[in-house]
Design a protein around this nucleic acid. Structure first.
Length: 639
RNA sequence: GCCCUUGUAGCUCAGCUGGUAGAGCAAUUGAUUUGUAAUCAAUAGGUCCGCGGUUCGAAUCCGUGCGAGGGCACCA
């Protein structure tokens, strides 16, 4: 005689065991239609699950995340079913729900083509139309293993073998012909999935995510509660594609890549101007914050890298070079060893600490070819690096100062939504535990002081110390890991760094590694995507284009352009034989923030008419006023 | 690195089942002198990614190398 308590507090009495289906029928016809899944005392269950005890039940529809998740999970199953009907001999492996959709990994010799995806979609549609019923069975372990082995599903059998003995093995049947091992829960029938789904791409994926294993074929799909949500999702993807920095970089004439040096950027005039603006801005900020900028060689003897540990730990990613006299040098993949060497020049006193040495160092790393991605993952990049040599007692304060500097700089660049990731001691590490205690406490205190949201990644710190990573959330909600702050008790000792303490004894300093953007190249990619190319005025590589209305006003336009440059506002004058409309279109597409139109009116009043990017409004301003306003704006961000 | 897709003019792309390349934009030249998102016309522009092979004949088919794209793995 179960009594069912619903979320609104109402209770329903049943005289015998009851399923979710019967409960929703009793509540209302419309809910019965929409119900996808339920939770029984907080645990998600199939709607056909039989309840025999008093409990509280919550019903989920496609409006709930739980409902949507089941839709996607079922879509994955039905896809696997469709694939096996269409391509007999294909083995199934795993098919989880992911953000916005699902995938399923298959083992099959022949590759799936995009035509296959269409066929699979069609078959899925048919299965959904048939509304095949779902049935759950619990199988005995041995039976399950031998069954899946017998039908040639060796991956499934392997999965079952890896499931702990005490766990229940549930088999879900979809219709009479297809079944899969699955934890569930599932929809009562395939019709509930609806038609708002789409198979998006096919790719390779390693069995159990390990590159030593064989490669499977993964088919990705997306599915939603209704067509409108699916359309909106596809639209979001399109919008994100429009922001692609590789596309915008071309359109804005910022940079390009070429075959001769994969993963290395050819910076065009405008891209390099943007690059330099960022550096100049940071130079100013770091100078104010007490950093000393230095620069170290890009090619250093192999011996140094052996001493620092990089040769062993990082060697596979390092470029090396052999000189004509057969000495081996490495092109630096990191700046730290060089910086420590520079620190080692000249005796250091405790009075010199904390010593903050910054370096815009260009590093080279031989990244796997498949990892390269525009500016976001390159083989040669410039780090906005700094190393702070300090005593153990100074760690907390320095970490706080660094964190505040980073946040201030992010804010100036338009990123106010920052999350921190804090990683503590890994299993494999160097240094005493009491030193780790101190380092972790110091860093965590700095994290807490920011009052920002943070996650703790247990055991993911570097082998030499704990670290924080700074994650930016961009304008369309994507997260980008940029800055990092690491505490290092290892490298200074390895490379023989020391300072003379008050007591006259030489001691080893602690080193903080920090980067604000991480990689200037990558950060520029992120900036472009965040702003969809429409960078704020101060950081725009080309801030103004002066456009004369006709030949008669060319002299005035040239004069305006020259005055702008003298006031340190970047500018070109467009004297091409095109009409005004054409030029406005061209420079708007190139994302120039301000177009300055010059005609008779402007010459007569010694002014310019401003057309702002994305605004049709015309705004006239005296030239002097313009120069004053905008050069002042530039000055805020540079020396 | 692995799987799949892919590489044609500066850019975006056509080129069906093999018969030595085509458009739009950009460029150049000329006309036009333009008041807020593409003025008109003419001209020029190509080792069809490289190297091998099949074929009477290859941009097209096959092999291989390189690059790019999407994933996977990697991101110390």
């Amino acid at each position: 005689m179960p009594v069912i308590t619903l979320t609104d507090g109402k209770t329903l009495n049943f005289s015998k065991t009851v399923t979710g289906l019967e409960i929703v029928e009793k509540i209302s016809k419309s809910l019965a239609k929409q119900a996808l899944i339920m939770s029984v005392n907080g645990e998600l269950k199939d709607l056909f699950y039989s309840i025999d005890k008093n409990c509280s039940v919550k019903i989920f529809t496609s409006k709930d995340p739980e409902g949507l998740e089941v839709i996607r999970h079922d879509a994955a199953h039905i896809m696997a079913m469709a694939v096996q009907e269409l391509y007999p001999g294909t083995q199934v492996t795993i098919g989880p729900v992911i953000e916005n959709g699902f995938y399923y990994d298959f083992a099959r010799k022949e590759p799936f083509t995009s035509d296959d995806l269409k066929k699979i979609e069609k078959k899925m549609s048919e299965i959904i139309d048939k509304d095949v019923k779902t049935r759950r069975e619990v199988w005995e372990r041995k039976k399950a293993i031998s069954h899946f082995k017998n039908i040639g599903e060796k991956y499934k059998a392997e999965i079952i073998e890896s499931i702990p003995e005490n766990e229940e093995l549930s088999i879900y049947h979809h219709g009479e012909t297809w079944h899969d091992l699955c934890r569930g829960p599932h929809l009562v029938s395939s019709g509930k999935i609806g038609k708002a789904f789409k198979l998006t791409k096919v790719s390779g994926a390693y069995w159990r995510g390990d590159s030593k294993n064989e490669m499977l074929q993964r088919i990705y799909g997306t599915s939603w509660a209704n067509q409108k949500d699916l359309d909106e999702y596809l639209h979001r993807i399109e919008e994100a594609e429009k922001r692609d920095h590789r596309k915008l970089g071309k359109e804005m004439d910022l940079f390009h890549f070429r075959e001769e040096s994969p993963g290395s950027v050819f910076w065009h005039e405008k891209g390099w101007a943007l690059f330099q603006k960022l550096i100049n801005y940071m130079r100013m900020k770091q100078d104010i914050a007490g950093y000393k900028e230095i620069n170290t060689p890009e090619v250093l003897d192999r011996g140094l890298w052996e001493k620092s540990g990089h040769w062993e730990k990082f060697g596979a990613n390092m470029y090396t070079s052999v000189t004509p006299d057969e000495k081996i040098f490495a092109i630096k993949p990191m700046n730290c060893p060089g910086c420590v060497e520079l620190y080692n020049q000249g005796l250091k006193s405790y009075k010199d600490l904390p010593l903050k040495m910054s370096e815009f160092g260009k590093v080279h790393r031989y990244e796997p070819s498949g990892a390269l991605h525009g500016l976001l993952r390159v083989r040669a990049f410039t780090q906005d690096d700094a190393h702070i040599f300090c005593t153990e007692n100074q760690i907390t304060k320095e970490c706080l100062t660094v964190t505040n500097l980073i946040l201030e700089i992010y804010k100036d660049l338009g990123f106010e939504n920052v999350i921190l990731k804090y990683s503590d001691r890994p299993e494999l590490r160097v240094g005493d535990d009491n030193v780790w205690d101190k380092a972790e406490a110091a860093l965590l205190e700095a994290v807490k002081a920011t009052k920002l949201e943070y996650t703790i990644n247990k055991g993911e710190g570097a082998f030499y110390g704990p670290k924080i990573e700074f994650v930016l959330r961009d304008a369309i909600g994507r997260d980008w890991q940029c800055g990092t702050l690491q505490v290092d008790f290892n490298l200074p000792g390895r490379l023989g760094a020391s300072y003379v303490d008050k007591d006259g004894i030489k001691k080893v300093p602690v080193m903080l590694h920090r980067a604000l953007f991480g990689s200037l190249e990558r950060f520029i990619g992120i900036l472009i995507e965040n702003y969809a190319g429409k960078l704020p005025f101060w950081i725009s590589p080309l801030q103004t284009v002066v456009i004369p209305i006709s030949e008669d006003f060319e002299d005035y336009a040239k004069e305006v352009c020259q005055k702008l440059k003298s006031s340190r506002i970047s500018s070109i004058v467009d004297l091409k034989n095109h009409n005004l409309n054409y030029k406005i279109r061209e420079h708007s597409l190139a994302k120039v923030p301000l177009l300055l139109i010059c005609g008779k009116k402007e010459v007569d009043s010694n002014s310019v008419t401003i057309r702002r990017l994305d605004s049709k409004k015309q705004e006239n301003m005296k030239l002097d006023q313009f120069l004053k306003t905008y050069s002042a704006l530039n000055k805020v961000y540079s020396n």
